[in-house]
């Protein structure tokens, strides 16, 4: 019961907060309103880091929201708005870092690690197989025969 209440309360809060955003920034086109909500979630506040501009109440975040509203109202696409912000606040402002010579390692290093470990495991297994050669088998056979 309590769980149900909490879920209901959580739903109410989330609805009211997104409604508050829609109150302040109005759009004629529901598609633009959706784009606005999407953009404010993926743009990062330059002042209070680790918050997106939808969550942040810092003045800069409010200014950025107003700018996003203005650009989206003018019919700009998502990519155009993101580029506009990146031009001013760097790659930092967008929650999806670009792949470049620095960040490529974030993907490459785990791959290199997996490949290296796999090769190592396979190679060490092969060695175990190779170690049992004919001379050893013959020796073992001799010991067995002697015991008999």
């Amino acid at each position: 019961m309590l769980k149900l209440l909490l879920v209901a309360l959580g739903f109410l809060i989330s609805v009211s907060s997104s409604m508050a955003m829609e109150d302040k920034f109005k759009f004629d086109d529901p598609k633009q309103a959706a784009l606005f909500l999407e953009l404010t979630k993926v743009l990062r506040c330059p002042k209070c880091q680790n918050q997106n501009i939808a969550d942040s109440d810092a003045m800069i975040a409010i200014d950025l929201k107003r700018k996003v509203h203005e650009l989206v109202s003018k019919g700009r696409t998502k990519q155009e708005v993101v580029d506009y912000m990146k031009q001013r606040y760097g790659d930092f402002v967008f929650y999806e870092p670009p792949v470049n010579s620095m960040t490529i390692w974030l993907w490459l290093l785990p791959l290199i690690f997996i490949v290296a470990t796999l090769t190592w495991i396979i190679r060490s297994r092969k060695k175990v197989v190779q170690q049992i050669d004919h001379s050893q088998l013959e020796k073992a056979q001799q010991i067995l025969e002697r015991d008999e």
Binding site: P46, K47, A58, M59, I60, D63, L64, K67, R88, Y89, G90
Partner: peptide, 12 residues
């Protein structure tokens, strides 16, 4: 209206 600040990339 803080437009120049925005163009300059001022964070605060």
């Amino acid at each position: 209206k803080r437009n120049l600040s925005l163009d300059l990339g001022v964070t605060g």
